[in-house]
């Protein structure tokens, strides 16, 4: 028996909107730790790791570890039917081939339940090693989204370089080239507007903008984004989910042949 009650249901709606274009089908894993997911896109270039900790739910009952295969597009369709202020409860019985999403309006005058068919998904969990990153950039998530969108109108790939000067995003395409440099800036009115750069070693890595643009669908989840880079390792683009957990996107770099 599984019953997870999330008062801020809009968080789950935003989570689905952020990953449904990158991943088609995925297993949601439920344990005493929380509600989580790890999945790769179909070409195995990017990986998404989601965690919603059990403490973040108003009610969290998970009698035994459960893995539920879901089509994320279908799940997003159902969650779209929840109001932004609705409380969402996820329910499943042991051995059942369905999951139920229950939506309650804040005033309790409208209660809906949507039952979705589960699916068998063959997916292997990958071990993500704990890494000390050479450079960690924290910046406003809207700024990062703007940069990825702007650069993708010029080129297909972005080179992200971190030096003492700041973080540079560069692209080249048929019509020309573009460079955007963001310097560390902590003298801002709101801490979330700051750009903070921690660098141990200079880093320069090349990535496909098609994927970074997918990641920025998570912008509504958090006002800041953290980009962790090490030479010759996948970049981690992390959006924290208010006191509950995170969505982390890992993207394999382009490597010189």
């Amino acid at each position: 028996m599984l019953e997870l009650r999330l008062v801020q249901g809009s968080l789950l709606k935003k989570v689905l909107e952020s990953i449904k274009e990158l991943v088609n089908d995925a297993n949601f894993d439920c344990s005493s730790t929380g509600f989580s997911l790890q999945a790769m896109d179909s070409s195995h270039v990017a990986l998404v790791a989601l965690l919603l900790r059990s403490e973040g739910f108003e009610h969290y009952r998970c009698d035994r570890n459960l893995s539920m295969g879901m089509n994320l597009n279908n799940m997003a369709k159902m969650l779209k039917c929840a109001g932004n202020d609705d409380i969402i409860t996820i329910k499943a019985d042991d051995g059942s081939d369905t999951v139920t999403f229950m939506f309650e309006s804040p005033t309790q005058d409208k209660i809906s339940d949507f039952e979705m068919k589960l699916m068998d998904i063959d997916s292997e969990h990958l071990g993500i090693p704990e890494a000390e990153y050479d450079a960690i950039v924290r910046m406003p998530s809207a700024e990062f989204a703007r940069i990825c969108k702007d650069l993708s109108s010029i080129g297909d790939t972005v080179v992200i370089s971190v030096t003492k000067e700041g973080v540079k995003f560069s692209t080249k395409g048929d019509i020309g080239a573009a460079n955007i440099v963001c310097r560390q800036n902590t003298t801002v009115d709101k801490p979330d507007d700051a750009t903070v750069i921690e660098m141990k070693e200079p880093v320069s890595l090349q990535f496909a903008l098609r994927y970074t643009n997918f990641f920025t669908k998570a912008t509504p989840l958090s006002s800041t984004v953290t980009i962790s880079l090490s030479n010759e390792l996948p970049v981690v683009v992390e959006y924290k989910i208010a006191e509950m957990g995170y969505v982390r996107f890992y993207l394999a770099p382009k490597i010189e042949e």
Binding site: M40, S43, H44, V45, A46, L47, E124, H125, L126, G127, I128, P129, T157, Q206, A208, L233, P234, Y250, A252, P253, K254, I255, E256, E257
Partner: peptide, 14 residues
């Protein structure tokens, strides 16, 4: 030229 690497090149099975 550069080649797109895959995630499985870096992360192994858990």
């Amino acid at each position: 030229g550069s080649k797109q690497a895959t995630i499985t090149k870096f992360f192994g099975k858990a």
